[in-house]
Design a protein around this nucleic acid. Sequence first.
DNA 1: TGTGACATAAAAGTCGTACTTTTAATTCCT
DNA 2: AGGAATTAAAAGTACGACTTTTATGTCACA
Lengths: 233, 233
Amino acid sequence: MTTPAPGLHSHVLAALGLAITAGEYPPGTVLRTDELAQRFDVSRTVVREVVRVLESMRLVESRRRVGVTVQPTPSWNVYDPQVIRWRLAGADRPRQLRSLTVLRSAVEPVAAGLAALHATPEQCRDLTERALGMVATSRGRQLDAYLVHDVAFHRIVLEASGNEMFARLGDVVAEVLTGRTHHHVMFEDPDPAAVTLHVQVAEAVRERDADRAEALTREIAVGALRELDVLAP
Amino acid sequence: MTTPAPGLHSHVLAALGLAITAGEYPPGTVLRTDELAQRFDVSRTVVREVVRVLESMRLVESRRRVGVTVQPTPSWNVYDPQVIRWRLAGADRPRQLRSLTVLRSAVEPVAAGLAALHATPEQCRDLTERALGMVATSRGRQLDAYLVHDVAFHRIVLEASGNEMFARLGDVVAEVLTGRTHHHVMFEDPDPAAVTLHVQVAEAVRERDADRAEALTREIAVGALRELDVLAP
DNA sequence: TGTGACATAAAAGTCGTACTTTTAATTCCT
DNA sequence: AGGAATTAAAAGTACGACTTTTATGTCACA
């Protein structure tokens, strides 16, 4: 779940990134590198490297004679997978989950439509396989096994779309699905209707029916949003 | 356009980032920090900080006893505004422009639908104003003035959607619009149909007609894609 | 001849310190 | 009171020493 990644750098980065995204340091707070070095018991070198990374994520801004200033949320690089993970781990997971799900609802239908046009035979096969896997694990509290198939399914669709930007949302979708499963923003067993829809999407892609693939995926998205409304109002 | 940002760090970062995204160092290439320090005539400290940032963008990976390895394109953080800018400045601008436009075509219609539900009176006003601005500058080689209104228009829609992820795509859209204008992936004067559609979107948002706003924006997107097909095949 | 333990060295990682540069804030002069 | 000169705080940069990891080459043994 959490990136293990050894090394002092990663440790401090994770600690600071998490703290900032969690709102522990409100925007405008200034941190001084020396102070941070002391706090984490590392050299200033390490802190500086961390700050530079945080700066590239626009979580902070470093200015001479002032220090490292925490930036307001609107300037954060919210598409950075690292930032997404930190935020999902923190206090505003609900809001985060919602805005990411809305993003999915916009992107995935279009991606599915393109996938119907571009998917390779192998991708079609994998997709069907995953859909069947979802069916097989959709009953009897097998949420974890189900999740694996679900994530794989959506990854394949995004990948098969042939669009680089869509493909790179695979990780984001994985985070969302994992997050909502592990935090019970989901029914005990997956919605049977959703499972069926996945099977049908695989079918539509196999049959190169772009419009149907798009429409069906849109239904999945609508369902996910509704579920979110019910369980995390 | 290009971030000036003084300092040795920014300079080296821009140089390396640009070179890597331009494919000057093919994936698998290993760079050694000492060598880079020499090449750019800066201290290892600076190079290390740059490498750390590049690593957070997943353009490179640094491993002990090996060096700094350039990563394959699929692992890059292609949503990082910095990376987007570098790539748009480089050789594969066409491909880049296309995949970003497809992304827009997925996101903006949904954003417009939401904007119709959530836009403040002020945003409605600004939107209308921008649409009228587009009309006013749509004839007689005023592409630059037109661009300003166009960018502002789309920014407002994304912002007004109330969704953070959408809002943060404002910069990306700005880059795309600017890019295609400045590189003549566009007709000499804007497509009159597109201009009209913008006016109608503003109207739909003002009247809280989500479905219409979405449909109209989808038409704009389709138009943009078609234009791209014609001018950059 | 192959295989596994061992030694070697190359490169990144870390640290501490000294120095430079920018710039917010204070002081001081008119 | 206002503006110019001074000060000092913090980041930026550089350098050198040392540590740690680890790919690779070596050698002994089966």
